[in-house]
């Protein structure tokens, strides 16, 4: 086989089973860590950017990510009943406990310049 080109975005994307399976490619482990770190508002915004309706989806999503979740595969291999991480309901936790996120939302744009500034700053905040 050829040596793997890990700079191809798809290569590592596929390893993140849940994100690969999500039609909007939500960065799932990123928001789960933010919840665990006590930062639900940031977890909410990671979702908001990708899937627009975190509170709605955290209750109703069809969850194509969960059957794909690595946790299920690992538990099955270990002889347990495979149970994926509750990705969807953790999204709801971010939505329910985020508090006021209005200041994190992009401002109604007066010009396209403000909006681009928002998306740039939103990227930086995330790291």
């Amino acid at each position: 086989m050829q040596s793997t080109d890990i700079r191809q975005p798809d290569y590592f994307h596929k390893v993140v089973d849940c994100q690969w399976a999500c039609p909007a490619h939500t960065p799932v482990p990123e928001y789960i860590r933010l919840i665990a770190a006590g930062r639900p508002a940031d977890a909410y915004m990671v979702n908001w950017k990708s899937n627009v309706f975190p509170g709605v989806l955290g209750r109703t999503c069809d969850r194509p990510c969960e059957p794909a979740c690595r946790r299920g595969r690992v538990e099955e291999t270990a002889g347990h009943t495979p149970e994926p991480v509750a990705i969807c309901r953790l999204k709801r936790v971010a939505a329910d406990t985020k508090g006021d996120v209005s200041t994190l939302m992009p401002p109604p744009p007066k010009s396209s310049a403000t909006a681009s500034a928002w998306s740039a700053s939103a990227r930086v905040r995330r790291r």
Partner: peptide
């Protein structure tokens, strides 16, 4: 559904394997 409370949420979050932290 009442949703996960804080403790359940923390426990469930811990189950995630951080598949985005890649072995390079």
């Amino acid at each position: 559904e009442l949703g996960f409370d804080h403790d359940l949420a923390m426990k469930e979050a811990e189950r995630c394997l951080n598949c985005d932290v890649q072995t390079v």
